[in-house]
Design a protein around this nucleic acid. Structure first.
Length: 220
DNA sequence: TGTTGTTTACTTGCCA
DNA sequence: TGGCAAGTAAACAACA
């Protein structure tokens, strides 16, 4: 079991190294010390794209066989993020449902893509496992703090992207937002650990959550 | 027993 | 050609 645990940590650390490209980070992602060092300046300019139109249903028609839908140009993490961004918290089965509803390619009751979805939920630190679902099996999954910029703004011009950003972010000086987030985060950190660089485990409260609960983002 | 969650291993495609 | 990311397969444990 300890082997498993250590492998989990190393794998996530490896993933984090790839994605964040930040040196000297051996702290666990759950640490708020790490969280506070997160690139808040980027977080303030959070991009919250509106629900993109459902992928155009591209049907490959073959008179000899049933219609086949083209695979959407999104990776599994992107699909999951879309679902979670739209619905907030979802169970695995609800994520399956959302994906198949929006992308008929995944209508096929195929174990392969579902396995991949579960695989991505597990290994990807952008997704956070929450409490057990009220009914049914499994847990509720939500976006972790650094999921905010995971989704590229596909199929959107930069001009449009700018509009989207402005539509969702309160117009206030960046420094105020940073302070608000930092203060809110500090309020849940034991005093002695705020500036001590301690790597002890802290409540896995996400920066996104902090900013949202501060009312700094109008909608998510 | 089926679903969910985790982990490992392998393949594939892209890019420098 | 090697490294990396994504996708896939499969095994296994936990749980309702």
């Amino acid at each position: 079991m300890s082997v498993m645990a250590s492998k989990t940590v190393s794998e996530k650390a490896k993933w984090r190294r790839r994605k964040c490209s930040k040196p000297d980070e051996d702290n666990d992602c759950a640490s708020l010390a790490w969280l506070l060092n997160f690139r808040l300046d980027e977080f303030v300019n959070v991009k919250v794209p509106d629900d993109e139109p459902v992928e155009e249903l591209k049907v490959i028609v073959n008179p000899e066989s049933p219609p086949m839908f083209k695979k959407p140009p999104f990776t599994y993490p992107e699909l999951i993020e879309k679902a979670l961004r739209e619905r907030g918290e979802l169970t695995v089965s609800a994520i399956y449902q959302w994906i198949s509803d929006h992308y008929p390619y995944y209508k096929v009751n195929d174990e392969r893509w579902k396995n991949s979805v579960r695989h991505n939920l597990s290994i990807n630190p952008h997704f956070r496992k929450g409490a057990r679902a009220a009914q049914g099996a499994g847990h509720l999954w939500s976006l972790a703090a650094n999921a905010i910029d995971l989704l590229p703004l596909r199929n959107q011009s930069y001009d449009h992207a700018e509009e989207v950003v402005e539509a969702h972010v309160i117009d206030c000086p960046k420094v105020i937002v940073l302070d608000e987030a930092a203060i809110a985060a500090a309020s849940i950190i034991p005093d002695q650990d705020i500036f001590m660089g301690s790597t002890m485990f802290l409540n896995p409260v996400s920066t996104e959550q902090v900013v949202r609960e501060c009312g700094l983002i109008t909608s998510m």
